[in-house]
């Protein structure tokens, strides 16, 4: 049973990734749609990380004791100033752990 579930899961993730790369699909993307899609990267990644920072136990957590917000703030400033993935993760995680211990 586990193996069948596993294979079905694998075909779902593969299909979602591969489907629109298939040339035979009768879809043509006009310039407007292409411009719209150029925003997909930042839009999707933001929609993933914002709830990680702000929502805990199904509730909005905007308080000084939310270490995720401090870490996120440090990471954002580091990303803006350095554009380096290493610095962003190091400084973000650093402040995240520090405030997590403090509060």
């Amino acid at each position: 049973m586990t193996y069948i579930t596993l294979l079905l899961l694998a075909s779902i993730t593969f299909t979602t990734r591969y489907l629109f790369l298939e040339g035979k699909l009768p879809i043509r993307l006009g310039p407007n749609i292409r411009c719209l899609l150029s925003f997909s990267g930042p839009a999707v990644l933001t929609a993933i990380f914002i709830p990680i920072l702000f929502i805990h136990q199904q509730q909005l957590d905007i308080s000084m004791s939310n270490a995720y917000l401090w870490g996120g703030l440090a990471a954002s400033i580091a990303a803006y100033k350095t554009s380096s993935v290493y610095w962003t993760i190091a400084l973000g995680t650093g402040l995240f752990l520090l405030t997590g211990m403090f509060f």
Binding site: L45, A79, Y80, T88
Partner: peptide, 9 residues
């Protein structure tokens, strides 16, 4: 979250 901040900002 930190990784994606590094990619978006």
């Amino acid at each position: 979250a930190a990784t994606f901040i590094a990619l978006v900002v």
